[in-house]
Structures are given as structure tokens and as C-alpha cells.
């Protein structure tokens, strides 16, 4: 082939839109913390902006008979509120703002990623790890704040004889520590894999079209790309939902240690 095939991971490259400056360090090359406003940051701001605009537009009239925007905002609220209530009980509603923020952020960021030429914020591990760490630290800090040392009961399943505890407790500790890892890896892996697959099929279309008579075959990867796009929209919404539900499940453990 004459030209380079399209690189499927090029879409995840981070570029500096404008530099803010370098902090700390001794002035030599590569020292200190370099801050810049990147395309990732831009899309995070856009995500938050869209959520804010949606919720503010939806709630500024507060009509008794809701209009379309208000209905959508209320349905979003009800959806998240029911999810929190179902998993953590009514007392978990104090975490509603956290869960709703996480859910809407991940959902809108994932769906933004489905637009061509848009950057997908959640396709970077550092972003999802930070989101998962927020949940993890909330669970740990709130668990100790609410239950005191009794929070450690989360590592001791009820109803096991004392002589197995020495094996079970390390396993439970590892299981607890693995939560933020699986929480973040799953979101990141799904989004990353989906976008790479989309790009690979898209690249196949281009490559086949460039190959003359074989261009007829390009309808096959094109159909795959269309189908994958539909699937990816589903995955984007589903992963946001799963992320929020698992947040609720973990918060439930913080409130009721010992299962």
C-alpha cells in the first residue's frame, strides 16, 4: 500500500492545546511539573458543561406540568435515585450527589466519545482510576467515620469458625483492595477496546477502497463498523450504569460492614 494505514490508537493521543506553565523544578529540561490544557481537559470541561446546561435548563422553570427538558431531567433524577435507593436503601440517598455526578460524567463522556473526531476522556486509565479512587476513598473514610473500628468487620464474613479466619481475612483484604482496580479497569478496557475495534474496521474500509477493484468488499467492514457503532453506544451507556451501580454496592458496604 502506498500510504501508512490509519493508526488505530492515534485517537487517544493527548495534545496540549495551550500551556499553563511549569511549576517547581530547577529550570532544567524535564524537571518540575508541566501543566497544560490538553484536549482531554477540554472534553472534560465540555462534558461537565453539557451536564450543567442540561440540568439547569431542565430545572429552571420548575413547572408543575413538566416540559420536555424538565421531564428528561426528572427522569434522569428518578433513574439514578431509584438505583441508589434499590442498592443502598433510603439512608444511602446522602450519597446521591456523588453517584449522580459519577454516573452523568461517565455517561456523557462515553457518549461524547462516539462522535467522530471527539476525544474520549474515559479511554485513559488515569481518568478512570481517579474516578474509582474517589469512590474507594469515600468508602474507606466514610466507613471508618460512621462505624469506627467496626468497619474492619467488612473483612470478616459472619459465621465462619475462628480457625479459618487467618486464611479468610487476607483474602478479603485483597478482594477489597482489588475493587478500585476492577472498577477502573473495566470502564477503561471496554471503552478503549470498543474504540480501537471501531477504528480498525474504519481503517479496513479505507484500505480496501484504496485497493481498486477490491473496493467492492469494503461493504463488509463498513457494515461491521455500523453495527459496532450501535454496540458501542450500548456499551457506553451500560458501562456508565455499571460504574454507578458498583459505586452504590461499595457504598452499601461502607454503611453496613460485615456481610
Amino acid at each position: 500500500m502506498a500510504e501508512q494505514p490509519i493508526e488505530p490508537i492515534h485517537q487517544f493521543r493527548i495534545t496540549n492545546l495551550f500551556d499553563i506553565g511549569t511549576f517547581g523544578g530547577n529550570g532544567t529540561e524535564g524537571s518540575g511539573t508541566h501543566l497544560a490544557f490538553t484536549n482531554s481537559a477540554l472534553f472534560m470541561v465540555l462534558t461537565v458543561g453539557l451536564i450543567l446546561a442540561f440540568l439547569i435548563l431542565g430545572s429552571n422553570r420548575r413547572a408543575i406540568i413538566p416540559g420536555r427538558m424538565q421531564l428528561m431531567a426528572e427522569m434522569t433524577y428518578e433513574f439514578v435515585a431509584n438505583m441508589v435507593r434499590d442498592t443502598t436503601g433510603t439512608e444511602g440517598m446522602k450519597f446521591f450527589p456523588l453517584v449522580a455526578s459519577l454516573f452523568l460524567f461517565v455517561l456523557v463522556a462515553n457518549l461524547f466519545g462516539m462522535f467522530p473526531y471527539f476525544f474520549t476522556v474515559t479511554s485513559h486509565l488515569i481518568v478512570t482510576v481517579m474516578l474509582a479512587l474517589i469512590v474507594f476513598l469515600t468508602v474507606v473514610i466514610y466507613g471508618f467515620y460512621k462505624n469506627g473500628p467496626r468497619f474492619l468487620k467488612v473483612f470478616v464474613p459472619s459465621g465462619i469458625p475462628w480457625y479459618i479466619i487467618w486464611i479468610v481475612v487476607p483474602i478479603e483484604v485483597l478482594s477489597f483492595l482489588s475493587r478500585p482496580v476492577s472498577h477502573s479497569l473495566r470502564l477503561w478496557g471496554n471503552v478503549l477496546a470498543g474504540h480501537i475495534v471501531l477504528k480498525v474496521f474504519g481503517g479496513m474500509v479505507v484500505a480496501l477502497l484504496a485497493a481498486g477493484a477490491w473496493g467492492v468488499v469494503s461493504i463488509l467492514p463498513f457494515g461491521m463498523a455500523v453495527a459496532m457503532t450501535g454496540l458501542e453506544v450500548l456499551v457506553a451507556a451500560l458501562q456508565a450504569f455499571v460504574f454507578a451501580v458498583l459505586t452504590c454496592v461499595y457504598l452499601h458496604d461502607a454503611m453496613h460492614p460485615g456481610h
Binding site: 485483597l174 483492595l177 482489588s178 482496580v181 476492577s182 479497569l185 473495566r186 478496557g189 471496554n190
Partner: peptide, 13 residues
């Protein structure tokens, strides 16, 4: 995906 990542995450940790 959920089961796989739960399993692998614990091993990684």
C-alpha cells in the same frame, strides 16, 4: 467483562 475484570484485578493486586 465484569466477571473477568473482577478476577484479573484481584490477581493483579
Amino acid at each position: 467483562f465484569r466477571l473477568g475484570s473482577e478476577f484479573v484485578a484481584a490477581i493483579i493486586v
